[in-house]
Amino acid sequence: MPIFRNVVSFQKHFVAKETDIYIASIPKTGSTWLKSLLYSIVNRSNQAISESPLLTHHPQQLVYSLETDIYSEAFDYPRPHHLDELVSPRLLSTHVPYTSLPESIKTSDCRILYICRNPFDTLVSSYHFHIAYIKNFINKEDLVIPSFEDTFEDFCEGIILFGPFFEHVLGYWKMSLEQPDKVLFLKYEDLKEDPAYHLKRVADFIGMSFSPQEESEGVIKQIVDLCSIKTMKELDVNKNGVINKFFEKKSYFRKGEIGDWTNHFTPSMVERMTKLMEEKLEGTGLSFKLLA
């Protein structure tokens, strides 16, 4: 698959900078939302919220993915000819597991924001995203829609893009405990519950804290409102067109709910996923909220 070639190129050639800020995640866990939040935090001093590029650009076009944008031949919107053309701090993203990151990222003083989501909703979101891709970009005569049951089985067996869910999450979780100044671990469910609080956490972590004046002027609320899935879904720029020739822009904004898995999982699936989650997370100190 082309994505694996992209990852190998990323691993071989990428050189991190001390000022870099990375968003890391397994796919479909809230990284698009976090991209919009991070971009807004970093650029708030030189761009009024009412004039934010997020109003005219998809978040994926403002925070580049290393393996699907920078090191991909499929990239189809303007990008720097070289990473050094990006202003500091460079805002970049990856779905690569921590153990597979280039050594320069691991050893530099860069910052990593890791966002995860409970495995139930992650699976459902991934399934719908995949179906949207298949229906729009696979030749009709080759069209085969995978069942949710088969997708569930693959997920439980760890047969998913960028590696098994729990190993991916726990790799970054461990590093967030060992190097809290380098890796900030975020949960999608926590962001949904109190976005303003976690927006401040992110700002503090990257060294761009909100001032008392900004807080009193409502800057945090403005960013939260701008980046909400409700706002993002309604923007024309996110309704039409594709990202990198393959992914519809609107497919990045589906429901954004906690607990949508209850509309898809059978009782036996719930039992199996719950058992798997308990086994994988036992003794790690990590847990997930499954319902709103």
Rank of each mutant, 00 (worst) to 15 (best):
A16C: 02
Q61G: 10
I21F: 04
L276P: 00
L161G: 13
S108G: 01
P80R: 08
K255T: 07
D150F: 13
Q213V: 15
V270P: 01
C116H: 09
P80H: 13
K140S: 15
E103M: 07
E282H: 15
T266A: 03
K275P: 04
S211L: 02
K106V: 11
P102F: 04
G207R: 01
L276F: 02
T231L: 04
F4A: 15
P2R: 01
P78L: 09
V87T: 08
D76T: 10
I145H: 07
R272I: 05
F246G: 15
P59F: 08
E153A: 10
E51C: 14
V169A: 12
F120Q: 11
F120V: 06
E157P: 01
C110M: 08
T231D: 01
N118C: 00
I160G: 06
I49Q: 02
V42T: 12
K35L: 00
L276D: 05
I134S: 14
G241Y: 05
K35V: 01
I160H: 09
Y22I: 02
S36W: 03
Y114I: 02
I131V: 05
Y71Q: 02
E85P: 00
E257H: 12
E214R: 12
D150Y: 09
E278D: 11
F75L: 08
D121Y: 00
V63I: 07
F185R: 09
T266I: 00
A48R: 11
A74K: 03
K230H: 14
T122C: 04
K135P: 00
Q47W: 10
L37V: 11
R254S: 06
L38A: 01
L86P: 02
F120A: 14
T99R: 11
I159C: 15
I206Q: 07
V169Q: 05
Q47Y: 13
I26S: 10
E193T: 14
L286Q: 08
S25E: 03
L276Y: 05
Y64G: 11
E248L: 13
D225Q: 14
L34Q: 00
D109H: 10
D109I: 04
L55W: 11
L199A: 13
F210G: 06
R5F: 15
G163N: 15
L170T: 15
R201G: 14
L86T: 07
F155V: 01
S25G: 11
S88Y: 07
